[in-house]
Simulated assay, not measured.
Amino acid sequence: MLALTACGGEPATGDSAGSREAEGFAINTSPEQDRVRAQAVPEIAELVPEEIRESGELVVGVSGTGGVPLAFFADDDETIIGSEPDIAQLVADVLDLDLRLEVTSWDNLLLSVESGQYDVGISNITVTEERKEIFDFATYRVDSLSFEARADSDITVRDRTDVAGLSIAVDAGTNQEEILVGWDEENQADGLEPVDFQYYTNPSDYYLALRSGRIDLHFGPTPMVSYHVAAAQESTIVGEVPGGGDLPAEIAATTQKGNGLVEPLSQALNTVIENGRYAEVLARWGIEADTIPESEINPPGLPARED
């Protein structure tokens, strides 16, 4: 991702007004995004539930702490930008609706979708069997996770035993936290040292902790980790796993279960996959490795963790 790998050469970085570069790959960080757009498809737009269609808006919730390049604030510190808002724009275009992005915390995001306050959540949400009891899903990206350490670290994460006894930053309420908790429980059952879980509100906080040596690792979405590795030149990826830890997983647009929106969402995503607009968005943010060939509705999700 972003034309780099964990064991690649030294990335060239640079900062200038309205852009950030990672190994020659520049992204636009200004509020003026000139997003990739799509044409409305009337036969798909007609499938949108009447209440949403009559409002003329698609209200999309997105976490403001998703991180570069998924979802983050532009240079004005007000406008939310990234690959997730861009995907949301494509979907709204096909459904012939104006996009209204609502920036919220991760903790509030799913609650707001469940209550119907937001029509859909497009914010790096992994499909799980537990979540499928409450939500409907239309997939749009592969889910992968990475462990990030200081550049001078000698840590390598090959399997769950390698995290035993380490201090690891992970976002609360996320799939990666659930994976790490499961690994930690198995490790402790085998007599290994427990993980020291560390939680921070903002990415800048756990990156500061990593840089200062207060934590050993950060565990998060690969697109976000990869960009930070390239742009900051102070850390490296020391392990990568599928979104399910040992199981493959997918990221999906998430809507209230049974409200009738998931079918047009999936059709809209498949339209932009087929016409190339989806590929343009992923390439724009350097996350082509996350591409899926087709959006699926409610595919098998990650199983619930046994207590």
Results as ranks from 00 to 15, higher is better:
residue 122 I to C: 11
residue 122 I to Q: 10
residue 122 I to R: 11
residue 122 I to Y: 12
residue 122 I to A: 12
residue 123 S to A: 15
residue 123 S to P: 08
residue 123 S to Y: 07
residue 123 S to G: 12
residue 124 N to R: 07
residue 124 N to Q: 13
residue 124 N to V: 08
residue 124 N to H: 13
residue 124 N to D: 15
residue 124 N to I: 10
residue 125 I to E: 09
residue 126 T to H: 10
residue 126 T to K: 10
residue 126 T to F: 06
residue 127 V to A: 00
residue 127 V to W: 00
residue 128 T to F: 00
residue 128 T to K: 00
residue 129 E to R: 14
residue 129 E to S: 14
residue 129 E to V: 05
residue 129 E to Q: 15
residue 130 E to L: 11
residue 130 E to A: 15
residue 130 E to G: 15
residue 130 E to P: 02
residue 131 R to Y: 09
residue 131 R to M: 10
residue 131 R to F: 05
residue 131 R to G: 13
residue 132 K to H: 07
residue 132 K to N: 12
residue 133 E to D: 14
residue 133 E to R: 15
residue 133 E to F: 01
residue 133 E to T: 13
residue 133 E to A: 15
residue 134 I to T: 15
residue 134 I to A: 05
residue 134 I to W: 04
residue 134 I to K: 15
residue 135 F to H: 13
residue 135 F to T: 13
residue 135 F to M: 12
residue 135 F to E: 11
residue 135 F to S: 11
residue 136 D to G: 10
residue 136 D to M: 12
residue 136 D to T: 09
residue 136 D to V: 07
residue 137 F to L: 11
residue 138 A to Q: 13
residue 138 A to E: 13
residue 138 A to K: 13
residue 139 T to R: 06
residue 139 T to K: 07
residue 139 T to C: 11
residue 140 Y to T: 11
residue 140 Y to Q: 09
residue 140 Y to A: 11
residue 141 R to I: 03
residue 141 R to H: 14
residue 141 R to G: 10
residue 141 R to T: 09
residue 142 V to S: 14
residue 142 V to R: 15
residue 142 V to P: 01
residue 142 V to I: 12
residue 143 D to C: 12
residue 143 D to R: 08
residue 143 D to F: 01
residue 143 D to Y: 10
residue 143 D to K: 10
residue 144 S to E: 14
residue 144 S to R: 14
residue 144 S to P: 03
residue 144 S to M: 11
residue 145 L to V: 09
residue 145 L to N: 11
residue 145 L to E: 13
residue 146 S to V: 00
residue 146 S to A: 14
residue 146 S to W: 07
residue 147 F to S: 04
residue 147 F to N: 03
residue 147 F to Q: 05
residue 147 F to V: 03
residue 148 E to W: 05
residue 148 E to F: 04
residue 148 E to L: 14
residue 148 E to C: 14
residue 149 A to W: 05
residue 149 A to T: 06
residue 150 R to F: 09
residue 150 R to G: 07
residue 150 R to V: 06
residue 151 A to Y: 06
residue 153 S to G: 08
residue 154 D to S: 13
residue 154 D to N: 12
residue 155 I to Y: 01
residue 156 T to Y: 03
residue 156 T to W: 01
residue 156 T to Q: 09
residue 156 T to R: 10
residue 156 T to G: 01
residue 157 V to Q: 05
residue 157 V to G: 04
residue 158 R to D: 09
residue 158 R to S: 12
residue 158 R to V: 02
residue 158 R to Y: 02
residue 158 R to P: 00
residue 158 R to Q: 11
residue 159 D to K: 03
residue 159 D to W: 01
residue 159 D to Y: 03
residue 159 D to P: 00
residue 160 R to I: 01
residue 160 R to S: 07
residue 160 R to N: 01
residue 161 T to F: 03
residue 162 D to H: 06
residue 162 D to N: 03
residue 163 V to D: 02
residue 163 V to R: 00
residue 164 A to E: 05
residue 165 G to C: 06
residue 165 G to D: 06
residue 165 G to T: 04
residue 165 G to V: 03
residue 166 L to C: 03
residue 166 L to A: 05
residue 167 S to W: 05
residue 167 S to H: 06
